[in-house]
Design a binder for these strands. Structure first.
Lengths: 360, 360
DNA sequence: CACCGTTTCTGTATCGATTAAGTCTGTATC
DNA sequence: GATACAGACTTAATCGATACAGAAACGGTG
């Protein structure tokens, strides 16, 4: 009998070490956390005893509790991990967050909540973090309320969200408009759009207007609206624009769903893709069909991921890394002011060779 | 004065709610964690009070401490985040870990420790996790000892490491040998090898034998040894094999460093790349030079990432996802047996079109 | 010697929760 | 009418550490 109420295995703790050396718990704690608070020789003796007893150093959880700091920020996203990382854009964003996190000795806790997975609540509730970054979490997601309820600093990158949540992103609509205006100026009038998915993931092929409006992703809606703005201006009816869903944000999916765009009568002369990964897929499909981008057909992406440059893809550049850094900073040091920050970072149209004058 | 010794802002806690409702702390705790332990009506009253007081539910850190479970596993790697995610192989591995983690309601704490970054110790020490997965952490890394010292379950994916650490991986040497044997059977005798980096990251260009041997990455050494095995067998001296470092594991870096292979007198007829990403870069370089893979030159990769199929790349397939799942499981449920698990997963040569008979 | 500023440790309160074991209260069983 | 028993809570003991106010010891000073 060791008299403890729960049957845990006994482990060395601060107290164990303190007893061994014959000092107070506090002193042992200081030996680890504030070397200046005690005599150097004593510190050595403490370490030596710790080694002998197999004491692994202050327990991270206990330390977190006492200090009131978890030392990590939670990254919540509704995609599968592989998804989230398959897209270089996401990676860029993550990297940004990681950079600022690292500067302050903070870790990143990944909290994926793909649609099908059970009980996202628990994950959020048990996450030992100092704040959350929401990333691709649609407005009505059940976990969202829970996250807010935890009362920790919170930043989202999804546009037109609850205005009480700090936001960092870009002008989705305006940026998309830039892309479409470019196309329009080149004389294109028969235009198609490639998206990842409008309603649930997995839905592929042409999407109706209703479906477009019903999309739970504000960013997507913003971009579509931007395209529409530009097309409206030159009198192209949005109803005539075929919006095709790849089903998921992947190059191969986009390539295969490109059939709905490329293999139809009255083939569009330009394709607007809401992400570079999709645009690259469209380019693959063009290549298979012997269509030369920039001559036979124009393709515009969005994001400007590294691979876009290799493919000479015309696209909208958004500062993904900066977005991540910004978001990270906002979580780590929430501004004290009353008004909720809503930051829009600048974007830029990068014209390469996949766009050209509309063929007659 | 609120009489508290440290000046923290007061927040609602279990006790606050308990007092408000007039029950014990335990009961409130049960309301959240064990609904069957109390009356349904009382439970509602508790929640109602919690809402009124703005109590966000049990504190994750405190819960972790008391329960003795952090609810996360730490993922330690020595690359930059962007690095780690840029490679589809890594992503596959991560995904595997994430899958099993998710099944048990566990999060993933990313702990990147790129060479230049300061104080990896703190990150490891403060990580609130139940175990660690080491990923690309070379043998002598300073953090390694620290991680072990924490006494938590630990799994590594780096070969020929300390035999006391559970390991899951593949037969690097044998697998590489398969790749090289394939090339050899096709009649190739002038062979080059493309690696990411031998000594520190950033070192590019041809690597000397000494540098190869000095590499801190056991996996790399294993693969090189495998290539060598096959070449030795047909009398190709390893000294005659040019080993070129791309500097980092990226497609563009590999493409540009391919000059050291493709633009030399007596150009090799086959290139063995220790990873698909590098192989793809080599293919890019070939394309630029008008060399047709499989005819003018043969290229073999390693990993079989999704993109390899698109590129019709001959490569060695390794079960990245399975590796991750395995590693995750080993951390989550460390086997009780005495002997340290050392698991080698099977690999397979996938022959596609980037390899062909040696040109005469 | 009284007074002072340091350096080095100790004591106590606290962080916010979970849990095994105990206390009551009624109800069912024999 | 005594005993067992389930239901609904409460008690008390932790989990493992850190913060802060003090206290003892010490050398230097006028």
């Amino acid at each position: 009998m060791d008299g403890r109420v729960d049957g845990r295995a006994k482990r060395a703790t601060l107290q164990t070490v303190a007893d061994e050396v014959g000092v107070s718990r506090t002193t042992v704690s200081n030996a680890y956390g504030r070397p200046d608070q005690l005599n150097k020789a004593l510190r050595e003796r403490i370490f030596e005893a710790a080694r002998r007893l197999g004491y692994p150093g202050p327990d991270a959880t206990a330390r977190s509790l006492r200090r009131g700091r978890a030392g990590a920020i939670g990254l919540v996203f509704t995609e599968t991990l592989s998804y989230a990382f398959a897209d270089p854009y996401s990676v860029g964003f993550l990297r940004g967050v990681a950079e600022v996190a690292e500067e302050s000795g903070t870790g990143l806790l990944l909290i994926p909540m793909p649609p099908g997975s059970g009980d996202p609540e628990t994950a959020v509730r048990n996450a030992v973090v100092d704040g959350f970054c929401l990333y691709c979490v649609p407005g009505g997601h059940p976990a969202k309320e829970l996250i807010r309820a935890r009362g920790l600093p919170l930043v989202t990158t999804d546009e037109t969200d609850d205005p009480s949540i700090p936001y960092v992103g870009i002008d989705e609509r305006g940026s998309a408009r830039m892309a479409a205006e470019h196309i329009v100026r080149l004389g294109h009038r028969r235009v198609a759009v490639m998206v990842d998915h409008v309603s649930g993931p997995g839905t592929t092929g042409p999407a109706t207007l209703d479906e477009q409006r019903a999309s739970d992703c504000a960013d997507l809606r913003g971009r579509l609206a931007g395209y529409r703005d530009a097309l409206d201006e030159v009198g192209v009816a949005w109803e005539s624009v075929r919006v095709v869903a790849a089903g998921r944000n992947s190059r191969t999916a986009a390539a295969s769903q490109s059939a709905h765009i490329l293999d139809v009568a009255e083939r569009p002369t330009a394709v607007l893709a809401i992400g570079d990964v999709l645009a690259l897929g469209v380019l693959d499909a063009c290549e298979q069909r012997g269509l030369v981008p920039g001559r036979d057909i124009s393709v515009v992406g969005f994001d400007d991921v590294p691979e876009a440059e290799r493919a000479r893809l015309t696209t909208v550049r958004q500062p993904m890394g900066e977005k991540g850094r910004m978001a990270g900073r906002l979580v780590l040091e929430p501004p004290r002011e009353e008004k909720v920050p809503r930051i829009k970072l600048p974007t830029e149209l990068v014209v390469r060779t996949t766009t050209g004058p509309a063929p007659r």
